[in-house]
Each structure stands twice: as structure tokens, then as C-alpha cells.
């Protein structure tokens, strides 16, 4: 496996100059942060296990405290519009058809037909083989296409397969790639394998002049402890993730507020240390406006306004949009809205 990693890396190095220097920069930064010349399991483990431990009770308590903030009137209006613009409208089912993806794209194009002032969601997130359908349907709208790749959702395939998966999605025109990490390797302490995987996928995202953003899914529901979430966040950022994302949405628990806050703290500390800003995307299980507003509060409290826009914070969700639209209509018209009056997605 290690051999194939290095060959993939060297291919890219000889293939495109831009991506190779980019990879070099990431590796150099990682060496610098870790404080070792060799990014092997031992050195990465030494660094990651040296990160301060997480006080679980404290983290849960802080999340619960932030969840009690009351957001009303104009602040709520702003929050609802911002949430819409941050949504990655997602469909990741085995039964996804081109028609279903086009329906979703139509929803992204015109989220609320009764209100032209409603912003569009940030992106539509689909499986890699349906990228071209979404791309056609969303041409000229500014809505980005995100594709899940690397043997989503389990990630249990050889690196070659996962890279091929990524390249295909990028070639079809995906603007963003949501990759899953190898949780088995991470839990077994093979940090360098996870690290090299991410580096290789990042190269595939940027090969041949492509500029696909890389979101790294940690699948926090499978990482067992908050300490592991913090380590995985740092590992992903060191390997060059543009975004770190909580979950695939296929595993319970998916995104939770304490876990997201933990990741927000990680990106904050990472920027302080390296100057590089990384985005955060909670995904799965956020279905009401009320919950989504709690996340915005957490972003503002932990990171400040720098992250309060769709370039740096996203929601991976499908049913959230309808709830936000109903809340927007409630604020606009003054009466409670029903699901009969929003389009199906």
C-alpha cells in the first residue's frame, strides 16, 4: 500500500508542476508543524497524541450553553438567509436517478418559487457518477457541484480505486470532492497511511489544472472519542484538507454540536499556527432551522465572522432547506407555514 502511495505521488509530481509544488508545500508545512523530517506513524502519533486532551463534560456543556442563545427578528432573518446560502443540498442514496438529481438541481436553482429574494444554496452534493447530470442542470447558476468520492461512505477500497473514483468525479467537472478517511487505519494508529491517502486525493483534485476543493470526512460517529476527533481534524488539515467535514450521514451519530465545536477550535488553532484557513462542514442530522442557528452561533463564538460565509462553513443536509424556507415564509408573512407549500426535494 505504501508503495502505491509513493508511486501515485511521484506520478503527479512528474505530471504537473503546479500540483507537485503544491504538494511539496503541504508536506513541508506538515513537517514543520510536526517538527520531524519524516512523516511516519511514529512522528505523527507523537504529534497527534501530544495535542491537549478534550474535556468531554466541558465540551458538551459549552455546546449546550451555546444552544440556549435566542436569535430573533433581523438577526434571525440574516441567519436563515445565511443558512440557505451555506447548504450543500445533498442526495446520496443508492436509488439516486438522473431525474432525482435534476429535481434537486431545480430546487437549488429556485429554492423558493414564491420569493425571488431567496438565496441559492452553496452546492449540490451527489455521487461521482451523477456529477455530469448536476453540472448540466446547474450551468450558469453559480451553485457548485460537490461529489462524494473515495469509495464513499465506507472508504473500504484500495487507494487506486479511490483515486480513480476521485479523478472521474473531477474530470466530470466536480468543483468540490468530499472524501472519506480510512477510519480503520486511523483507529489502528496508521496515521501516515491516512495522511498519505489525503495527500494523494488532494493531488487528484488538483491534477491537470483542475482546482477541486477537498473536503475530508472524518466520520466522527466512528471515531469513538473526542480526542480522536481532534487528532483526525489535525491530521486532515496537516495533509492539506480545504474543509473538514463531520460525517457521511450514513452513520449515527452524525453531526453533533460538541463535535463540530471541537473541529471549529481545531481550524482556529490551525490558522493561528500556520496562517492557513480551513473550512468546516457539519453534515447529517441537522434538519431544523433551530439546530442550524445553533451551529451559526457556535461558529461566531468560536471563530468569529471570518468563517461566517459559504466559503468557510457549510451544512450537509437535505431536509434542512425546506424547514428554513418555511421559517423564512413565516417571518415574511406572519403565519406558520406547512410542508404542502414548499417544493419536494
Amino acid at each position: 500500500m505504501t508503495a502505491s502511495v509513493s508511486s501515485a505521488t511521484s506520478d503527479a509530481r512528474t505530471g504537473a508542476d503546479g500540483s507537485s509544488s503544491d504538494t511539496e508545500k503541504v508536506l513541508a508545512r506538515a513537517r514543520d508543524v510536526v517538527g520531524a523530517t519524516e512523516l511516519d506513524d511514529t512522528n505523527l502519533a507523537r504529534y497527534l497524541h501530544g495535542l491537549p486532551g478534550v474535556d468531554k463534560v466541558g465540551a458538551d456543556g459549552r455546546a449546550a450553553m451555546l444552544g440556549t442563545r435566542s436569535i430573533k427578528t433581523t438577526a434571525k432573518q440574516w441567519a436563515l438567509d445565511t443558512i440557505v446560502s451555506m447548504i450543500d443540498l445533498t442526495t446520496l442514496e443508492g436509488a439516486d436517478t438522473p431525474g432525482k438529481v435534476r429535481t434537486l438541481a431545480a430546487k437549488a436553482r429556485t429554492p423558493d418559487p414564491s420569493d425571488p429574494s431567496c438565496p441559492r444554496p452553496a452546492a449540490v452534493c451527489v455521487y461521482g457518477d451523477l456529477v455530469h447530470v448536476a453540472k448540466d442542470a446547474l450551468a450558469g447558476t453559480g451553485v457548485k457541484i460537490a461529489a462524494v468520492a473515495t469509495a464513499f461512505p465506507s472508504g473500504r477500497a484500495s487507494l487506486d480505486v479511490r483515486l480513480a473514483d476521485t479523478r472521474e468525479a473531477v474530470a466530470q467537472g466536480a468543483d468540490e470532492i468530499d472524501m472519506v478517511i480510512d477510519r480503520g487505519a486511523f483507529l489502528a494508529g496508521q496515521y501516515s497511511k491516512v495522511f498519505e491517502d489525503i495527500v494523494a486525493v488532494r493531488e487528484a483534485c488538483r491534477a491537470d489544472g483542475a482546482q477541486a476543493h477537498l473536503k475530508v470526512i472524518l466520520e466522527t460517529g466512528e471515531l469513538a472519542t473526542y480526542d480522536n476527533v481532534r487528532r483526525a481534524s489535525w491530521l486532515a488539515m496537516l495533509a492539506g484538507a480545504d474543509f473538514i467535514k463531520t460525517s457521511t450521514g450514513k452513520v449515527q451519530p452524525a453531526a453533533t454540536l460538541p463535535v463540530t465545536i471541537l473541529m471549529l477550535e481545531a481550524v482556529r488553532d490551525f490558522r493561528e499556527l500556520t496562517g492557513t484557513q480551513v473550512g468546516v462542514k457539519p453534515a447529517g442530522g441537522i434538519s431544523s432551522s433551530k439546530d442550524a442557528i445553533k451551529y451559526l452561533v457556535a461558529v461566531n463564538e468560536t471563530l468569529g465572522e471570518d468563517w461566517l460565509n459559504p466559503d468557510w462553513f457549510r451544512f450537509g443536509a437535505s431536509s434542512l432547506l425546506n424547514d428554513v424556507l418555511m421559517q423564512r415564509s413565516k417571518m415574511r408573512t406572519g403565519h406558520y407555514w406547512g410542508p404542502d407549500y414548499v417544493t419536494v426535494s
Binding site: G334, H335, Y336, W337, G338, P339, D340, Y341
Partner: peptide
């Protein structure tokens, strides 16, 4: 009043 104007009733 809110129940009378509720769209889902």
C-alpha cells in the same frame, strides 16, 4: 389566530 392562519391546518 395563529392556528386559523396556519398553512398546515
Amino acid at each position: 389566530p395563529p392556528l386559523a392562519s396556519h398553512m398546515d391546518v
